[in-house]
């Protein structure tokens, strides 16, 4: 272990202690670690954006035209300048134009992406479970497959109904029909099961990070002791 490894190990050890000091309350060391991380990360990201995006995509094309402006290079430059004007209180509204452009593009990508990448395949996947090739085996009904297909269809309908039910009956205290309540409860059960898996998944990932970090510190201390 050379001197650089020791310094880097010590930094990691100190930062870990500073972060875990949050258990004692929201204190100076915890906040200092956060601000240090934000500063380092922002500086790094700014340097990456400038060298990997701004210089090659915005500045280099202008230089390639020997300083002569073409509409394809001028428009993004102008839009970027309008964005920079947002830094000054009096010209904040100038940034609306580039932001509106960006929002429009993002909205279009969302419409296309969600419909083709999530909604269509997921809905088709439910329907496809009822295809004759799956629900029949040698001309006989395959009851296991049929039950599974019906279970998934009803489950998804119940979850969607629960969504709709909560959104449209906010604060509605009137008595609801048994069917409505029943379907809503089934939807809640499915959502609860999914949340349970999400909770355990996130906890396991966090626990893995915690154990790995403790293990790194243990190895560092052992290597310091053993030289």
């Amino acid at each position: 272990m050379n001197a650089l490894d020791v310094i880097i190990g010590l930094i990691g050890f100190a930062l870990t202690l500073m972060v875990f000091s949050y258990l004692l309350g929201y204190n100076f060391f915890f906040r200092a670690a956060l601000y240090l991380l934000v500063g380092i990360s922002s500086g790094y990201i700014a340097a990456v954006l400038i060298t990997k995006v701004i210089l090659p995509l915005l500045i280099a094309p202008i230089q390639a035209h020997n300083g002569q402006f073409s509409p394809l290079t001028v428009v993004p430059l102008l839009l970027c300048l309008l964005l920079v004007l947002m830094l000054f209180p009096r010209t904040v509204s100038a940034g609306k134009l580039p932001l509106a452009f960006l929002v429009g593009v993002m909205a279009a990508l969302t419409i296309a992406g969600v419909s083709r990448g999530t909604l269509a395949p997921q809905l088709l996947s439910i329907v496809n479970r009822f295809s004759p090739s799956l629900v029949q085996t040698d001309g006989e009904p395959a009851w296991g497959q049929i039950l599974e297909a019906v279970f998934i269809l009803l489950g998804v309908v119940a979850v969607l109904f629960t969504f709709h039910h909560r959104t449209h009956l906010k604060g509605d205290t009137e008595a609801r029909s048994g069917l409505v309540e029943g379907l809503s409860s089934v939807g809640q059960v499915f959502i609860g099961i999914t949340f349970g898996m999400l909770f355990v998944g996130f906890y396991t990932t966090a626990l893995t990070a915690l154990i790995a970090q403790l293990g790194t510190i243990k190895d560092f201390i052992l290597s310091l002791i053993t030289g």
Binding site: I11, L15, V19, F20, L36, I40, A209, L210, Q213, L214
Partner: peptide, 17 residues
């Protein structure tokens, strides 16, 4: 990496606690 790795991993670990 010497800053980001331990700080972010510890924060995620803290989330477990």
């Amino acid at each position: 990496a010497a800053i980001q790795q331990p700080a972010e991993a510890s924060l995620l670990g803290l989330a477990a606690l």
